[in-house]
Amino acid sequence: MPQPRKRATVHDIAAAAGVSRGTVSRVLNGGYVSTEARAAIEAAITEVGYVPNTAARTLKMRRSQAVGFVALEPHSLFLDDPNIGAIMLGANAALSLADHQMVSLVVESARDTERVGRYLSGGFVDGAIVVSARTHDPIIKMISDLRLPAAFVGHPPDLDQNIPYVGIDNVGSARTVTERLLATGRRRVGMIAAALDRDSGIDRLTGFRAALGDRFDADLVADVPHYDYGSGVKGMRLLLERDPTIDGVFAASDAIAAGALEALREAGRSVPREVGIVGFDDSTWAVRTQPQLSTVHQPAKEIGSCAAQLILRQLSGEQITPEGQLLPTPIIWRDSA
């Protein structure tokens, strides 16, 4: 049985380069050496196949060089909601540029919360990006108690004011896209409202209600649990049962809007001739549907990147002001309304 190859050390580099171990250490730690010595050491590193011992470095620095991406959503939503994936990719790109690893942690149950809590408190990550935290979520208290460098995507009302966050103006965006829908002449406009246990869901319903004013009808709000396709189908069927004359719908996400389109096709309703529908996110769902969705553009990758930068700034010792960072959300108007 072949024996595993012995790991090359700093001594091996020094011997191959003909320099002292201290000179090699200065190069590996970013210190100054002569151009000739640096060239010799870099050639020796290639020759001996040296790979830095990150485990030893972690113990010395008391840093893991890892950041947790904590998503408080059902596992199935990762397949249905492109936004979470885009936020994750944006965060990972920013962390990778800073030579940090991202660790994905999905929280779907109380047991998951306990498991992730043990992981966060065990020193396995240097910070945490938290997506979709609910009001009174134990993860918020846990991170606050640990004083772990953190950044939230969105802003639950009970969020510790010392923890920074990045997000969008859900109220204003929902109001604007609903007003644009109303301007097309729709008279009976409903909403498929999702995730009313967190800030994004509540805020989008608030914006919808503000746009309608006196015309708001609580019976034309279908409350569904998640931002997913199946919730859109169920929510649209419920609205049609409550009022078959409904002629406009604001769906709280593009995935929900796609499901609503399916339910409208089942019912023989033409979009946009008989029913106008708008979504939220400008995700891949928006351009995969027929007709394509009018929607609110949510800069998901930029949100993820900004959240990661907030973590990195804290890890560098910078004092972050508690004010949140809100990114712009233009309306993208297509054929569904």
Rank of each mutant, 00 (worst) to 15 (best):
M1P: 02
R7G: 11
R7V: 13
A8G: 09
A8Q: 12
V10G: 00
V10I: 15
A17L: 07
G18F: 08
V27Q: 03
G30V: 00
G31Q: 03
G31T: 11
G31L: 08
Y32T: 15
E42N: 14
A43K: 15
I45G: 04
V48M: 07
G49V: 09
N53E: 14
T54D: 13
A55I: 14
A55N: 14
K60Y: 11
K60C: 10
M61E: 15
G68M: 08
F69I: 14
L72W: 00
P74Y: 05
P74L: 09
D80G: 09
D81L: 11
M88S: 13
L89K: 05
G90V: 05
A91T: 04
A94P: 00
A94F: 08
L95Y: 01
S96G: 12
Q101M: 14
Q101W: 07
M102G: 03
R111M: 12
V116Q: 02
S121C: 02
G122T: 07
A128M: 09
A128F: 08
H136L: 05
S144R: 09
D145W: 02
L148P: 03
L148M: 13
P149T: 01
V153C: 14
G154N: 03
D158W: 03
D160A: 13
G167F: 04
D169R: 13
D169F: 02
A174N: 11
L181T: 01
T184S: 15
T184E: 14
R186S: 05
R187Y: 01
V189T: 12
G190A: 13
L196N: 07
D203G: 06
R204D: 06
F208Q: 01
A210G: 00
D214W: 01
F216E: 03
D217T: 07
V224A: 04
D228Y: 01
Y229W: 07
V233W: 00
K234Y: 02
G235D: 09
L240R: 07
E241Y: 00
P244R: 12
G248Y: 00
V249R: 05
F250Q: 02
G259M: 08
A260D: 08
A260I: 08
L264H: 04
R265T: 15
A267G: 11
P272T: 10
I277Q: 02
G279S: 09
F280S: 05
D282F: 05
T284Y: 07
A286D: 06
Q290S: 15
Q290C: 11
P291M: 10
L293R: 07
V296C: 10
V296T: 08
H297Y: 10
Q298C: 08
A300S: 15
A307H: 04
L310G: 06
I311N: 01
R313K: 15
L315P: 04
E318K: 09
P322D: 11
P328F: 13
P328I: 12
P330S: 12
I331L: 15
I331K: 02
I332M: 13
A337F: 09
